[in-house]
């Protein structure tokens, strides 16, 4: 299974499977080495205020990491290094009651490596949710997808920076970013910068961003079928915050549903 060098907190995983790591055992700092030709699904728990993680994904391996961010203020710094034919997927379900900062830098180092980063964030009170997600396409035939959904309530603020850098010679690479934020109250705010830096030809890239209050056409459509305004708003907000639950196991899925339904 996994081998842990406790001095340096390097965790080597050499077998397929689902793993749960309690970060309190690693002083909130760990490097995960996912060895060749394996498929792993990691759930990380026990975050404290500051967490620093690094993932090295070897050739032909698949690694999926899920973060259910709860309770007190959190800062997560994360780095990923991807090798040939590897896949690295990150899912952040952020229902933390206080501020959250996620800084992620993913390096696509070898051909046919690909990564998907998906987050959902619910900001309330005076919360600041800060997502800084960057991708470096160092070589060709690499793919990155970034998708984020935020709902800002009260006086909260959601700030999202996405940078996809397709470097020279990274031909045939693909980079996509899609960010949507819903402002629930008059004082709620959101800023999103889905940035593409492209230094070579023959690539595919897209970026999209939508920030605003509830869409009146959507509301009218739902009301016209007899739904009350409260129910219509609830369904639309669920549509932002709930789909991420499908990536989580049953216990966390229920937690996510409870967090969302508890608020709406």
């Amino acid at each position: 299974m996994e081998q842990v060098n406790s001095l340096e907190n390097i965790i080597s995983i050499n077998k397929d499977g689902k793993y749960v790591f309690d970060l309190t055992k690693y002083n909130q700092s760990a490097t995960f080495e996912v060895l060749k030709n394996i498929k792993v699904d990691l759930l990380l728990i026990g975050f404290n205020k500051n967490t620093s993680l690094s993932f090295n994904i070897s050739d032909n391996s698949f690694c999926q990491v899920k973060f259910l961010i709860e309770n007190e203020e959190k800062t997560i710094n994360l780095q990923g290094n991807l090798n040939e034919n590897s896949t690295f997927n990150l899912y952040f379900a952020d229902y933390c009651k206080e501020n959250t900062t996620v800084k992620s830098n993913i390096n696509l180092l070898k051909n046919n490596s690909n990564t998907n980063v998906y987050f959902t964030s619910l900001a309330k009170g005076t919360n600041l949710k800060n997502y800084d997600i960057s991708f470096n396409h160092e070589v060709g035939y690499t793919t990155s997808n970034f998708e984020g959904y935020g709902v800002a309530m009260d006086d909260s603020f959601i700030k999202i920076n996405g940078v996809s850098h397709i470097k020279e010679n990274a031909i045939k690479s693909e980079a996509h970013q899609k960010v949507k934020c819903l402002l629930f109250d008059e004082k709620s705010r959101a800023i999103a910068n889905p940035i593409l830096k492209i230094d070579c030809d023959d690539i595919i890239a897209s970026h999209a961003c939508a920030i605003g209050s509830l869409n009146n056409d959507h509301i009218f459509y739902l009301l016209s079928r007899g739904l009350s305004l409260e129910e219509a708003r609830r369904l639309i907000i669920m549509g932002y915050l709930l789909p991420i639950k499908d990536y989580f196991d049953e216990e966390d899925k229920n937690k996510i549903v409870n967090y969302v339904e508890g608020d709406f």
Binding site: H218, L222, L235, M238, G239, L242, P243
Partner: peptide
């Protein structure tokens, strides 16, 4: 509707 709304996530 002539152009029914697409409502992602719902």
């Amino acid at each position: 509707f002539q152009n029914p709304s697409e409502i992602p996530g719902v």
